[in-house]
Design a protein around this nucleic acid. Structure first.
Lengths: 235, 235
DNA sequence: TCAATAGTGTCTGTGAGACACTATATC
DNA sequence: GATATAGTGTCTCACAGACACTATTGA
């Protein structure tokens, strides 16, 4: 989140974003704005287009269209405020969700969270949250944090290992924790998860109806580096 | 598809689309452009944002950003050419895929097709393809045509009926076909499919690896009513 | 009667979840 | 030792697919 340095909503926490340049592709603009406003220069492991928000009244200054992007990073380097931002820092999603966000940034954030939760089910996105080598428990923690629910360690372990191309074993172990050292892995070649890892939203009611009403659209995402373009009058 | 009435690519088949107006929301613009260029005035049963295409060189005239939409209609009224279109007609997707499309319309079409195929798996989108009352076989034909593969009638029947809120029975039957009359249904209240109806892309190889490489991004959509906005210089 | 489609019954295999159990580390 | 975590074994249940079977129509 950045604290806005200019009107409107000067001094208010918002998602980083800005205007696309004339000869710039949309993902490039997202990366540039993120870098300019937060100093984060990492090549994100994962950057995907989220959704486009274009309600006529979304910006009081002019008609704009925002093309929202979702970035996923394995580590969170300390951001520094840049152009148009007096402050830049990481915030926990659950805190931001309780905040009043400017523009339609609440919708954008909700879409980003929903996308991330959904994509853990049927893609290998989880590996983008962890480093180049990781343990199965690291991966499980990603699922547990993003989904907000505990998973059975044993079943998760087996499911990841039997999911063709999800992870691939590398030599070595990671000790230093409390228990038995864990084997190390790197991301596999698969992008889509063969049998998807579906989350039961209803915590296993005995009758059917488990996934009947999910809160989000699976084809609809946590951080946003936005692109906005202005619509010329009369176009 | 419409035949373009103005440059560039005058006389070439393309997806309908045009520029968003100053005080118009994006879905409204999609509906308006579809109506203006093809005469289709139906309120589509289903209209969803597909993806935004903004490569700097996508339009030789100026920098534009296209917000693509996917519409699904149960019936296909005869379209008539309108503004900027000398011809408007329905084409089979497989034919259009073999055509050279202008701009980045091939990418847009591919995204639309992928979205529709994917959404049949985990949503009740199929009901948007059929009328207000339909038979299970109607629904099965949607899956078979969009997925391009035959499904077992018996298993499909059971799967639809046991999928909570997918369809709901209405009185009456539809005879007139060759065999036993079929019961009639209307769309149920569910939007998401409880146990999803997953397609096996590999036609059931004995070994694992069934859904390992899918051709499309499940979170990515067949017709497009596009929105384009121009980027002012120096924004 | 035959052919075609609607719909049901049944079997088998896969996989998810619950949970017990073994293995190996730190305290 | 106790405790915590990694990883495996096993059982049960749900469900997908294959396929046989019954039901009901038109030709």
């Amino acid at each position: 989140m950045i604290r806005r340095g200019s009107e409107p909503w000067r001094g208010v926490l918002a998602l980083p974003g800005g205007f696309v340049r004339q000869d710039e592709d949309l993902p490039d603009a997202a990366r540039r704005e993120l870098r300019e406003e937060t100093g984060l220069d990492v090549q994100p492991v994962h950057l995907e287009q989220l959704q486009t928000f274009g309600a006529p009244d979304r910006d009081p200054r002019a008609r704009t269209v925002a093309v929202a992007y979702l970035a996923v990073l394995p580590t969170l380097p300390e951001p520094v405020a840049g152009t148009d931002a007096t402050e830049a820092d990481w915030r926990a999603v659950e805190d931001v969700l309780r905040t009043d966000l400017p523009f339609d940034h609440a919708d954008i954030l909700a879409a980003g969270l929903a996308r991330a939760r959904s994509k853990l089910e049927y893609t290998t996105l989880a590996t983008a949250f962890v480093g180049t080598t990781f343990t199965i428990a690291d991966l499980r923690h990603v699922y547990e944090v993003v989904w907000g629910r505990a998973l059975d360690p044993g079943n998760f372990h087996r499911k990841v290992l039997t999911s063709e191309g999800f992870v691939s074993r590398v030599p070595g172990q990671r000790a230093g924790g409390r228990g038995r050292p864990a084997a190390l892995f790197t991301p596999g070649s698969a992008v889509l998860l063969n049998p998807p890892i579906l989350r039961d939203l209803e915590p296993s009611t005995p009758d059917r109806q488990r996934r009947a009403h999910r809160d989000d659209d699976p084809a609809a995402v946590c951080a946003r580096a936005g692109n906005e373009v202005e619509v010329p009058d009369g176009a």
